[in-house]
Design a binder for these strands. Structure first.
Lengths: 228, 228
DNA sequence: GCGGTCCTTACGGGCCCCGAACGGCCAGGA
DNA sequence: TCCTGGCCGTTCGGGGCCCGTAAGGACCGC
């Protein structure tokens, strides 16, 4: 499910956006100030953020910077200011798009679709197969020795990340950041439990992992090839 | 060099854009109709396309579709039409951004920067190969004589540093500072142990190092291939 | 209230870091 | 020639960190 975070201090407007987006089948989180927006973002994976710049208290650009410190999630900035310099500042601070109020709901939805489209097929490698495993990233299905295996959302999230970076080493910090949020980078206990669970489900010989290997002190790696 | 294609039928406007972009250090191609735009795009790699929708003859959205048939290069659409449906159509046809005329040059430049930033900074050469060694900095993986070699975090840290500065001398102080912290710059005993370990794992003839050479009293150096 | 999922905690074991000690090489001096 | 001191390479062992695993509690859906 595609998750979208909407940040705006005008509650009616916020609710209207939430309704429109949910009607399109997105999972929507709402926040009406900066700190709670960052909190929600830290809580788990997001696919798009829609961010109003005119927030009371914490400025919208500060929220943007707070996000950019650890994630590259697409951010669409909303603002009543038509001032060119404001646009330049927001875009250079890491915004992906800048829409001036008032705007049409259809335009915003189209820009959300554009942001999702860009992020999605960036790494287009829907199916990965090894001797024992078949992992279909698009349809979120995994076969081990021909039998379909059920993965919980968190397990899938980790597998997805590792498989997308196949061959490369992914640090525990990065995995934790993506799966649980930046506040949990150090909680490596958490990861070990899930890696064990994943291996129990997917590895032919869980105590001696062949595909989901760990590099002590550094991170984890998914290797598809059969090379030693 | 970053290459940008600008497509517009109003020649003065086209020239003005070209000048501004070139002044920023981009390599700019100009086209004033659809067919020549597609031709130029097919001719070689582009990093961004700036596309006016109001072209005579071939419509701008057709150019967009022509591009999207084979490339995912970022496209920023320009248009005099404020009509919302036009924006939605262009974005859904694959545009990455939609800017209505008139617009400020600085805004366009900021949107170009945003598009380039999204596409990802051109990843530099992360793989170094010599006669016996293959060192993949991105994957954190090392092959010696075709076999993958396991490096501990500290060993990898040192190898990474030396390979990134390949050919250049890296002082013991710098290595120690990076690996253990600034308080340990003098503890050269420490380094010798790790260099020995690294050579034992990676050098074809550890007592006579070929790649990880020491410069007595100064530091260490990684030299790829072509020794002597 | 029940199954599934998430998260925490505890424990045993293996490996990594790191200090220390020793030997080799070289240059300089008595 | 022998000694000495500086710098380097190598080996070894202990302490501590990191990892895998199991068990159980918390939370949320149906």
């Amino acid at each position: 499910m595609t998750r979208i975070l909407v940040v705006d201090d005008e509650v009616p407007f916020l609710r209207a956006l939430g309704v429109s987006l949910r009607a399109r089948g997105y999972a929507v989180e709402l926040a009406k100030d900066g700190p709670s927006a960052l909190n929600l973002a830290a809580r788990g994976h997001l696919d798009v953020v829609v961010l109003d710049l005119g927030l009371p208290g914490m400025d919208g650009t500060d929220v943007l910077r707070g996000l950019r410190a650890w994630t590259s999630v697409p951010v669409i900035v909303l603002s009543a200011r038509h001032n060119e310099q404001a646009k330049v500042d927001a875009l250079d601070a890491g915004a992906d798009d800048y829409v001036t109020k008032p705007f049409g709901m259809n335009e915003l939805l189209a820009r959300v679709r554009a942001a999702l489209r860009r992020a999605g097929p960036a790494v287009e490698q829907p199916v990965v197969t090894t001797g024992h495993l078949t992992i279909d990233l698009a349809s979120k299905r995994v076969l081990a020795d021909g039998r379909t295996v059920h993965l919980t959302p968190t397990e899938w999230h980790i597998v997805d990340l590792l498989v997308r970076h196949q061959g490369k080493l992914v640090s525990q910090a990065q995995l934790l950041r993506e799966v649980r949020g930046p506040a949990f980078e150090r909680e490596t206990d958490y990861l070990r439990v899930f890696m064990a669970q994943i291996r129990r489900k997917l590895e032919p010989d869980p105590p001696r992992p062949r595909y989901f290997v760990t590099e002590p002190g550094m991170g984890y790696r998914f290797q598809a090839g059969d090379q030693e």
